[in-house]
Amino acid sequence: MELRQGILKKNDLLAADLRARFGAAGLLAVNLVSSPGAGKTALLERTLRELRLTGQRVAALVGDLETDNDARRLAMSGAPVRQIQTHGCCHLEADMIGRHLEGWDLGQLDYLFIENVGNLVCPAGYDLGEALRVAIVSVTEGEDKPLKYPAMFHSADVVAISKIDLAAACEFDRDAALRNIREIRPGVEILETSSKSGAGFAEWFELLARRREAADEAEA
């Protein structure tokens, strides 16, 4: 008996609905993925704070297995933030995003950031309706992370190398890292950031604005 049905079909359908809602609302949804401790929350803290200073309307959903520590950290920026506690689930799914958006007027937002559960394996297969998937790898993790977790890095639209202020202390081999990223994801945009010093954030904000504009044009 033929079936030919995607195993994650339910998630894919919900993600398609979300993508349509985000597109209609004119916001850019960004899914941030990395291993635990690569600096997703730190990057997001600075991103929310600085975008708000330039008048951008931003909000964030943040996923963790337990605690609302990250949501409380991010809420200091003044942006609307909600925690998604997955209670053991190793990734975010589209229906969790849908449920946690309830009551928010998406038309009043320019950017929605979704900080996924820290995990370089499982979130790769779950579409959240995002327009942009950003994989973050810190200089403390080693240059071969993309080779070890190819499915995730291959699914990314942007790769950010984070904590570059620590590169020298870690004897980080920048050329090897760039080569490995490009080997797994040819043509991907690569950023080099420090959430501490702010290095690379001008490029990050330029990229976000450009992608948002492109998404708006595609919608129109």
Partner: peptide
């Protein structure tokens, strides 16, 4: 990642 068929 799909179910192709069932043998029943």
């Amino acid at each position: 990642l799909e179910i192709v068929s069932l043998e029943i």
